Amino acid sequence: MTKTAQRRTAAEVAVRPVEAPPPAGDRGRRRLTDQVRAYGFLVGGLICFALFSWWPAIRAVVIAFQKYTPGSAPEWVGTENFTRVWGDPEFAAAWKNTFTFTVLALLIGFAIPFVLALVLNELRHAKSFFRVVVYLPVMIPPVVSALLWKWFYDPGTGLANEALRFLHLPTSNWSNGADTALVSLVIVATWANMGGTVLIYLAALQSIPGELYEAAELDGANIFQRVRHVTIPQTRFVILMLMLLQIIATMQVFTEPFVITGGGPENSTVTVLYLIYKYAFLYNDFGGACALSVLLLLFLGAFSAIYLRLTRSEGDSA
């Protein structure tokens, strides 16, 4: 391009009129359109929650006070369902098994994801590969995962006992033994669900400023002291929230007892949610099932409120 053409182009750009902003009315209409579109998406989500979450929950609370059988008119019975469920011998066993499962899941399954996240955070090579490996169990459908572990725990030809025989170690009944069934289910649940927890911990670890670790190293802190005085305080909020979510999830365990043990042996793996299933679909007692659901809802709601109150108080005092 010649210099004359360049000057002409520059002159045209210089004298090109600047576009005036749209009138106030157009801006208002555009803002209104954006708000209508946003509220439209919001209303759609609220309708989905109302139809598939809130309404079933409200309906369950109503049925808890009724004698309800599909195909017949419901009959109000007051607190009779709660009294009958409370007196069921399986009621105490189900709550005991659920609490035991929750405690074992905290002891076994809460520390492992945190340790794995620490290890993955220190890796320098193949980070993406190991993240996929850790998260892979989450992508397997829960029923498929439970069926795989059911074969793995088979006392005769299962892979677990085959490995023990190869190492010349005593075999176990695993999920078929009353003393070992619940622990076996905790291992399954930990393996199947820890992938998401590991990634959340990993994201929290990567948000910690590196200067804190450098200062700790200059002060002579070893790796355990750095974890105790830097890592845990910096990820405290994430740890507390994930602990609450894990407790709520393990209190509602159902897939593993249903698929692997069927509540046995000797009712050693009957949980509250599995007992709800039995009332509804084996005993055809939907009133009792909903009464159990309401009791579980009240317990988890009260526990969550107390937990959040205590952790918030600790955070304020700190």
Rank of each mutant, 00 (worst) to 15 (best):
P74M: 02
R84K: 14
L275N: 03
T261F: 06
S207R: 13
Q225D: 13
K96I: 10
G287Y: 11
N161Y: 01
E256K: 09
L199W: 05
A221K: 13
I63C: 02
R165T: 07
V13A: 14
F129G: 01
R16C: 04
E12G: 01
V18E: 11
M251F: 15
P22Q: 12
N161W: 04
V61G: 03
E314P: 00
P155D: 05
F101L: 11
Q6G: 03
F41T: 05
T250C: 12
C48K: 03
W149A: 04
E75T: 07
T171Y: 00
A20S: 11
L297V: 07
V143E: 02
E211D: 15
L310A: 14
G196E: 03
V43Y: 07
V270H: 10
D88S: 08
G44V: 01
I47L: 14
V238D: 07
E12W: 09
L275F: 06
L245K: 06
S145I: 05
A203Q: 09
R312E: 14
S128Q: 08
R27N: 07
R30G: 01
Y201Q: 04
G87C: 08
F286N: 09
S175D: 01
F303W: 02
F166G: 12
A20F: 01
I276K: 04
L308E: 09
L245A: 13
F49P: 02
F281E: 01
D154K: 04
S145R: 00
D26P: 00
S317K: 13
F281Y: 11
I208E: 08
R27T: 02
V115A: 13
D316L: 13
P74A: 08
W76V: 13
T157I: 13
T69N: 05
L212C: 03
Y39E: 00
A64N: 07
F166K: 04
I239P: 01
I208S: 06
L182Y: 10
R16A: 15
V85L: 09
R30F: 03
S72I: 05
A60L: 01
I108M: 09
Y153N: 09
E217Y: 04
P141R: 02
F65C: 01
